[in-house]
Every structure is written in structure tokens, then in C-alpha cells.
Nucleic acid binder design. Structure first.
Length: 554
DNA sequence: GTCAACGTTTGG
DNA sequence: CCAAACGTTGAC
């Protein structure tokens, strides 16, 4: 096991905990694989790895690190000003591993690529000038490091192809041409832990990549996307095109550093990360758009997460329709601490879901469409102070007793608490489509989700006029909070429910499509009564006054 | 010296 | 290819 030794140029220095990040400051979970290995938790202590929950998000250079050229430590504290501080700080090159003061290099940082994710990490101007990349690191004088593994072989092969495309010039090849399908696929699997390959743990590899290649990590999937198809570009959003070369993304038009770039791969959201990563690289407006990648500046879609969350940079993770959720996916999710998690139509188990939600206290959106209640019941074991959206559509086998379990406040509320608070206290959007939810459960919804603004009850067979009465009754907190309700496909509803909606002052959208017993005439009358002008009796939608929208098919 | 755990190697 | 093992580093 000879790890690198000696003080030769570029011999690798081990990084160490920052001790400041959230992960560093928490205690060991005692439950993860590595905790269970530890002697203190009764394990054999052979693995000698950090608790999964305590993996440092910003590992720092050790105190003993010194500049290769002058032999001195980091001196950024001795000066004022960003530039000076940078020049006197120690920077470790992720290619040659050399640690130097930029000032000692005397090369100017224009050519360097600074890694904004890892403290004191860059691709040094020397390597950049020589055209070196991470691939080459095994071959240089440092020599100590193994050659990169096969995955990287794929990566770099593709990068080379990309460079060749560049020579041939645009336009980008059609998606089917390159990169080779297998490599393409493998690459995509690296975006997130793979869909259904067996259990795997990306710890060490992940950590190493974190150190060595983090600057390109969030973008690496993009490299392989010849021509992604793009979805949303909202009115306030900017669409820009850029090209990827090596680990650099060149954006052609934009500059603000506080926006976010969202990369969509094959129509699927791959992740969200601040554009400043891209800005860490050179601007090159003239770069040919070979292998065009489109990025959407989604300032308006995703408020930027606090800086401390930048390490993982994934605000949304979508694993919908993955056949199985593997342990590595789970730990990947935890490391990234997403604000939004989509697990719809997956076979996630109750145990897995429980494990997850207990570690995602900041989660704001959870989508569990099409999962089984058997798994979803995990929700009844936790509370979600940050949760705003809960999607439970089309969950099989949901009974009233189940929803009661979920909606009722935990029974073990502390005696000191003035009032017991339900688990979904702060949820503002609840989707319950396709559930056999009865009025008895709806009563609980009314009582225990006081912040609810959007409620989706479409295709709930038991929902009828009485249910609407319940939701809009004088003692219902939802009366004032409801802004949108989806009741499409609720065949028990009749025209009689319509006037009840007037009780809700904020209600601005009612979806009554495919409600067999709600007539267009009834809707027209409802809108008419709400004030002129009356819409035509047939054809959706009916517009009611004050920008309210009643949607009804003819 | 002890303890934690990084990064590499090994074995399945 | 991945999980486990382990030598060694770094903090204290």
C-alpha cells in the first residue's frame, strides 16, 4: 500500500477536513456503513472511513503544506485585497499536484482554471499552457499517481473526439452520431449513481474526483450531450448557447455570476449549479458551437442556494422511473442535499425512504407519484419542517387510516409543546390525484395543512360536493389559503358545488375538466353570477372576473 | 503517542 | 468494476 511519499514536485498531499462545513460539524450517524465498521459502534474498524454524513464538503490543504518554490506556508492573512490574498495563498494543481503561491509562479492567473468548489484548488497556468489535463497527470514527473481509471479513459476519449469536431467545425453532429452510445450511456450514469446497477459506493472515487476534477464535475455530463432537447425557457429566462471543450464551458452571451445554469440532459434535469463555475473559466464569446450545449439561466426558476450548499450544487434530483434505488444513489442524494427530490414510479423501499427523509431536513419538494403506500408510509415516521410540496399521486393501496397516520401530528409530541403540530404544517401544495380519499381524510387535510394553497384532488373517486363544502366551510383554514384546486375527473361533483367556491377569496383556478356531472351551462352560470362578461356556454376555459380561471371541457 | 480518515491497492 | 482492506498521513 505505498501511498505517495517523498517531497518531490507534485507528490500528492492529502487534504483534511475543513471543520467548518455542516458535515464536519455534525456527529456520526452511527447507522451508515462506515459508522457500523467503527470500533466505537461495535464494528471491526477495518474500513477506516469517515461517516457518510460527515464527508467534508470543502477539504482543505493540511497545515503543513508549503509552497514548492519558496517553501513557505500560505500567507494570505498578511495582506488585504482579493488579488493579493489569492497571490499569497497556496494553490494546489489538480493536474500536477504541485502546491505553490501563485505569486511565486510568476505566470499570472489568466491561464489558470480556478476550482471554485474546492478551497485552494486550481489547474495551474503551467499545466494549462502545456495543454496538460487530468488525464496526463500519471505521466508527468509526479509519477506517483496511478493512471486514471477506465472511466476517465472514456471521458477523455470523448473529449478528444470533441476536439476533433471542433476542427471540423459546426454544426453539431446529430445526437445519434457521437459519442458512441455505450460510452454516452456510461457517462450519463456517472451524473448520478447508476439506475439499476448493483449497489455501489462512490466514496473514494467520488472523493478523489471531488479533489481532482470537481471543476468539471457538474458539467461533465454536458460534454456528452450532442444536442440536448430543451424544455422550459420562461419569459424571464435567457437562453444561451455555449460549447464545451475539455473541462471548460464557454458561454457566449452572459456574465452575471449570481445566476444559475441548469443543464438538461435528454430532457431530464441533471442538476443545477451556479454559473460562476463556468465563469471560473475563460470567456470566449467566439468559440464555435460545436457539440452545442444549451444552458438556461434559471434565475427565476431556482433561487440560488446559500453558498454553503454550493458544494454539491444539485437543487433538484430526479430519479423518477428508476427501477431500483441503490445505496449509492441514496448516499449521492444525501451528499447533494437537494431542495427537490423526485422519486416517482420508483420501487424505493420504506426503509430507504425513511433513511433519506431523516437526512434531508431541508427538503422542500418531494414527489412520490406512483410509489406504493408500503414505502410512502415512511413519511409517517418523520416530520418535514421545510417541506412545501408533497406529491402523493396515484399511490396504490392508500386507505383512510394511512392518511390519518400521515396527517395527524406525531403522538409523541413533547409535553412542553403548546400545540401538537402536524407533519405537513408548512406544505403549501399537496397532490393527491387518483387516491381513494374520503371526506374523513379530507377533514384531516383541512385541519393539518393550514398553509395549503394548491390542492390536487383530480381523479379522486370519492370526492363530491360535500367534500368541496368541507374544504370551503367557515371553519376551514383552507378557505382563506386555497388559491388553486384541481378536481378534474371527480365524477361525483355536480353543479351544486360551484357556488361553494365563492367562499374562497384567494381561489383563482378551479379545474373541473372531465367532471361528468358538472355542466358547461352550470359553469357559465357560475361565471355569470360572479360578474360580467359571461363566457360562451361551451368550450374551455371559462374566464371569470379578476383573472380567475375556471377550466371546464365542453 | 492516539485517533481519524485519505487515497491507494486488493480481491471478488 | 466495486467494496473492502489497509498503510500512512495529519491533527491533536
Amino acid at each position: 500500500m505505498s501511498s505517495s511519499k517523498g517531497a518531490g514536485a507534485g507528490s500528492r498531499r492529502r487534504r483534511t477536513r475543513c471543520r467548518k462545513c455542516k458535515a464536519c460539524q455534525r456527529t456520526e450517524c452511527g447507522e451508515c456503513h462506515f459508522c457500523k465498521d467503527m470500533k466505537k459502534f461495535g464494528g471491526p474498524g477495518r474500513m477506516k472511513q469517515s461517516c457518510l454524513m460527515r464527508q467534508c464538503t470543502a477539504p482543505v490543504l493540511p497545515h503543513t503544506a508549503v509552497c514548492l518554490l519558496c517553501g513557505e506556508a500560505g500567507k494570505e492573512d498578511t495582506v488585504e485585497g482579493e488579488e493579493e490574498k489569492f497571490n499569497l495563498s497556496l494553490m494546489e494543481c489538480s493536474i500536477c499536484n504541485e502546491i505553490v503561491h501563485p505569486a511565486c509562479l510568476k505566470m499570472g492567473k489568466a491561464e489558470a482554471v480556478i476550482n471554485n468548489e474546492i478551497p485552494n484548488c486550481w489547474e495551474c497556468p503551467k499545466c494549462k499552457r502545456e495543454g496538460k489535463s487530468n488525464k496526463d497527470s500519471g505521466g508527468d514527473g509526479a509519477g506517483k499517481r496511478r493512471a486514471d481509471n477506465g472511466e476517465d479513459g472514456v471521458r477523455w476519449k470523448l473529449t478528444d473526439e470533441l476536439a476533433q469536431h471542433k476542427k471540423k467545425l459546426l454544426p453539431a453532429p446529430p445526437p445519434t452520431e457521437e459519442p458512441p452510445a455505450s460510452a454516452h450511456k456510461r457517462k450519463k450514469e456517472k451524473e448520478l449513481p447508476p439506475p439499476d446497477t448493483g449497489p455501489k459506493k462512490k466514496l473514494k472515487g467520488g472523493r478523489e474526483k471531488h479533489l481532482k476534477k470537481a471543476s468539471e464535475q457538474p458539467l461533465e455530463g454536458n460534454k456528452l450531450q450532442p444536442l440536448p432537447s430543451w424544455g422550459r425557457v420562461g419569459s424571464g429566462d435567457l437562453e444561451v448557447k455555449g460549447s464545451i471543450s475539455h473541462s471548460t464551458i464557454h458561454l457566449s452571451q452572459i456574465g452575471p455570476s449570481d445566476l444559475e445554469v441548469e443543464a438538461v440532459l435528454d430532457g431530464m434535469t441533471a442538476g443545477t449549479f451556479p454559473v460562476l463555475i463556468a465563469l471560473g473559466h475563460r470567456w470566449d464569446a467566439g468559440t464555435a458551437t460545436v457539440l452545442t450545449v444549451v444552458v438556461v439561466l434559471s434565475k427565476f426558476l431556482h433561487p440560488r442556494p446559500p453558498r454553503c450548499c454550493d458544494k454539491r450544487l444539485w437543487t433538484r434530483i430526479d430519479l423518477s422511473r428508476r427501477k431500483s434505488i441503490t445505496p449509492s444513489m441514496l448516499s449521492g442524494i444525501i451528499r447533494r442535499q437537494p431542495a427537490s427530490l423526485d422519486l416517482s414510479w420508483t420501487n424505493i423501499s420504506k426503509k430507504q425512504l425513511m433513511w433519506l427523509i431523516n437526512r434531508l431536513q431541508g427538503l422542500r419538494e418531494l414527489v412520490l407519484t406512483g410509489c406504493s403506500w408500503c414505502s410512502v408510509s415512511a413519511l409517517s415516521t418523520a416530520s418535514f419542517p421545510s417541506l412545501r410540496l408533497l406529491d402523493l399521486r396515484w399511490i396504490e393501496d392508500v386507505k383512510d387510516s394511512h392518511l390519518r397516520e400521515l396527517l395527524l401530528p406525531p403522538t409523541d409530541s413533547k409535553p412542553g409543546q403548546t400545540e401538537s403540530r402536524g407533519r405537513l404544517q408548512n406544505v403549501s401544495e399537496l397532490r393527491l390525484s387518483g387516491l381513494d380519499i374520503t371526506d374523513s381524510s379530507l377533514r384531516l387535510v383541512v385541519r393539518h395543512t393550514p398553509q395549503l394553497a394548491k390542492l390536487d384532488l383530480s381523479h379522486c373517486n370519492h370526492v363530491g360536493d360535500q367534500s368541496v363544502n368541507l374544504l370551503t366551510a367557515a371553519n376551514s383554514p383552507l378557505r382563506d389559503s386555497l388559491a388553486e384546486i384541481n378536481l378534474s375527473g371527480c365524477n361525483r361533483l355536480t353543479d351544486q358545488c360551484l357556488p361553494l367556491f365563492r367562499r374562497c377569496p384567494r381561489l383563482s383556478r378551479i379545474d373541473l375538466r372531465s367532471c361528468r356531472h358538472v355542466t358547461p351551462e352550470g359553469c357559465a352560470r357560475f361565471c355569470e353570477d360572479s360578474g360580467p362578461p359571461a363566457p360562451p356556454p361551451a368550450g374551455p376555459p371559462f374566464r371569470c372576473p379578476e383573472e380567475k380561471l375556471l377550466i371546464k371541457d365542453s
